[in-house]
Every structure is written in C-alpha cells, then in structure tokens.
Write a protein that binds this DNA or RNA. Sequence first.
DNA 1: AATTTGCCCAACCGCAGACTC
DNA 2: GGAGTCTGCGGTTGGGCAAAT
Length: 187
Amino acid sequence: MGPRMTRKGANRGGPWTAEEDLKLARAIEVHGPRMWKLVAVEAGLSRGGKSCRLRWLNYLRPNLKRGNISDQEEDLILRLHRLLGNRWSLIAGRLPGRTDNEIKNYWNTHLHRKVERTEKKNQSGCSHQEPLVDNGNGRSVTADEEEFRSLGHEVQIDRVDEGPLNSDWMSRFMELDESWFDFTFPM
DNA sequence: AATTTGCCCAACCGCAGACTC
DNA sequence: GGAGTCTGCGGTTGGGCAAAT
C-alpha cells in the first residue's frame, strides 16, 4: 500500500513531489492562480483542481511564512478566534503570510487545549468566557468590542442573538477596517 | 534497543455559495 | 429560474516522527 492511499481509497494523491510543484508553479505562471481545473490539466498532473489550489495556497504561494508562530501572532489568533469562531480564512486574512490551514492546525494542536485548560481554571469563578466591561452607556460589551468602539466605529448588535458566527459588525470590521489590525498587530 | 504513545501537519472530503449557460 | 460546474471553506484523517516507557 502506498503512502496516504488508505483513506476512502483511491484518489488520495499523497504528498506532492518537487516535480509536481514545479509543474504546478509553471502552469500558474501561465494561467494565474484561478481556473484550477484548467491549471491541473495544463500542468499535466493527475490531481484535481482542488488539490492544486490547496498546494498553491499552502506552499507555493509567494511571501508565505512557515512555522514559528510568534507570541504576538498567537495572541492575535486567540483574540480573533474569540470574536469570529472557526472562520479560519478570515483569521488568516489578518495574519500576513499565514494560511487558513496553518492557523487551523495551530489552533487544533496548540491553542484549543490551552484555551480549554484556561476555561476549566476559570470555571469555578465566573462562567462567562468573554469578560464584559461597562462601556459607560449602561451596556456591557466585550473588551475587544470596546476597543473597536474606542477607535471610532459603531457597533450595533444585539448580544442576546449574536453568536460568534453571525456577528455582522465583526464581519464588516474584518473586511473593511485596517486601523484596528494595525493597532493590534503592528508590522 | 524495541515498542508504545501522542503530537504535528499535509492533504483529502463534503458541503455551500458563486458563477455560467 | 433551474441545472451543472467551479471555487472556497471548515472538518477530519492518517502517516511520520519524537518523546516516553
């Protein structure tokens, strides 16, 4: 049995070889990092478009950082995850040179347990996982939300209904606001 | 030294949304 | 507007490797 061919059998292509990487990179030079099905065919690879896309995004793309996630980055991941939940691509978008896959892996292997342990510690006291502060308007908000406000942004959500996955204000902020990021994670 | 255990992470799968005809 | 296809995302798997026994 070959490497990585056991799971649901046949089309697990296995690890990429240097030759495949080269072929893929050349095809992307010609066609650009889009139309992955075409890129896969043009590269002459026996892999699907999805596989090519993943390889490009996670390895071949220029300006990628690999490994060595700094304390600063870790802190940012923790904070963004608290706000956004498992929206790895959004989180990765705020960490230049990092991929969603890398962040997801890092979370699952390092941070998830760390957070669980911290929460267990805190469980004896306050059960709320996201400490609230008084924003001076008779309404409690999270520290991150308050920080966002302090930069002059309006936050209009109903906390009762808002889970981490449908925070409209946070989505808007993640897409549009650069100043919070620069403030949080100066490069 | 040999075996077991646990962690890391590359790569796949399934699904949903976007796009095209 | 419906069907078919493509793309992107999050969840999951399993091989490799180092540490522990």
